[in-house]
């Protein structure tokens, strides 16, 4: 709808400019030009927002998409006492969650920047992907948490605790797990927890897994980076919040990493290869290569199911 409206505005302002030019004086003509420019900028912004889902429009289907016995996608609000952040989160509950009393492994799926979890839901169709992989037996039923990572949509935290800023890392590694343990039947041991993400979310997944190996057993990176590319405020973007630096200078933890990238995604491919080259035991590494597709949702759609399958094979099973 916003696309139609914004394009209509461009059309209308162009027509008004054309019709009103001869009748207006200098001030009026300037106003017409500015109006046209603004409409074009607005139309571009709408399209960029459509791509990134930074400011999502329209309601998300949060009811059971797979029928009364199928999986569910819930919208919740996580009030984090540790981080003092209160942010929305989507929760995927597999169909198996409806029956029985078992406890399930958990995957935190992180979004890119700029962006929101809506990209997972709309562009990557995460619910139907998970349903399909679980139904095919390639993945065990798991709970997937899709949290927001920043209280300000255009503030890039890279899932770190920004100096004098939002404590995103604490929110994602303390508050979100605590919320899940309180509200859902989840496994509470490290073996049952994993991370994934695309783009900046992929960096987050790698960085958080390396920083919290006692909490996460595995992480899958879809077009990630070796460094955050922001100033954390304490210099840690060059050291402890820099997976490349961590792999070279700190003992490597006994976790499993899956690094996927597109061959023509220059920065991600270079960083992923650099990370892969630095890995040594006990850290276990699997790499995945998409021939081309750049840094786009088409690539992440291609990686999504293989990454979830791999995660399931490296996380503990559901507890009966």
């Amino acid at each position: 709808m916003s696309t139609v409206l914004s394009l209509a505005a461009v059309l209308v302002t162009a027509a008004v400019l054309a019709l009103g030019w001869s009748r207006a004086r200098a001030l009026g003509r300037s106003a017409l030009v500015v109006l046209s420019l603004l409409s074009v900028v607005a139309a571009v912004a709408v399209q960029v927002n459509r791509l990134t889902e930074a400011y999502p429009t329209g309601a998300v289907a949060v009811t059971a998409a797979a029928g009364p016995t199928g999986s569910r996608l819930l919208t919740v609000t996580v009030a984090g006492p540790a981080s003092r952040l209160t942010l929305p989160m989507y929760v995927y509950l597999p169909a198996a969650y409806r029956t029985g009393t078992g406890r399930f492994p958990v995957i935190e799926a992180l979004h890119g920047y700029p962006g929101t979890p809506l990209t997972w839901l709309r562009k990557l169709n995460v619910q139907s992907t998970l349903d399909r992989e679980i139904a095919a037996g390639r993945m065990a039923p798991a709970i997937v948490l899709l949290p927001y990572q920043t209280p300000e949509r255009l503030l890039d935290t890279e899932c770190t605790n920004l100096h004098d800023g939002p404590q995103a890392e604490t929110f994602l590694t303390a508050d979100v797990p605590a919320f899940a343990r309180t509200h859902y039947r989840v496994r509470t041991d490290r073996a049952g927890w994993g991370l994934t993400g695309y783009s900046a979310g992929a960096f987050c997944a790698i960085n958080l897994a390396l920083r919290h190996p006692r909490q996460y057993a595995a992480a899958a990176s879809l077009s990630g980076y070796a460094e955050p590319g922001i100033d954390v405020g304490d210099g840690s973007q060059n050291t402890t919040n820099n997976p490349g630096w961590r792999l070279r200078h700190l003992p490597q933890p006994a976790i499993a990493l899956w690094l996927g990238w597109a061959g023509d995604d220059i920065e991600s491919a270079r960083d992923s290869r650099r990370l892969a080259a630095a890995v040594h035991r006990p850290l276990a590494l699997t790499t995945a290569l998409v021939a081309h597709g750049g840094h786009s949702s088409a690539v992440w759609r291609q990686m999504e199911a293989p990454a979830f399958d791999w995660l399931s094979a490296h996380l503990a099973r559901p507890l009966p």
Partner: peptide
């Protein structure tokens, strides 16, 4: 020597992209 319940599940063959496992 981990708890048996920490083992991964038995699974069908996963979807795979061109990939390699780096064993170090």
């Amino acid at each position: 020597d981990q708890p048996v319940t920490a083992l991964p599940p038995a699974l069908a063959a996963p979807l795979r992209l061109p990939s390699r496992v780096v064993a170090s």
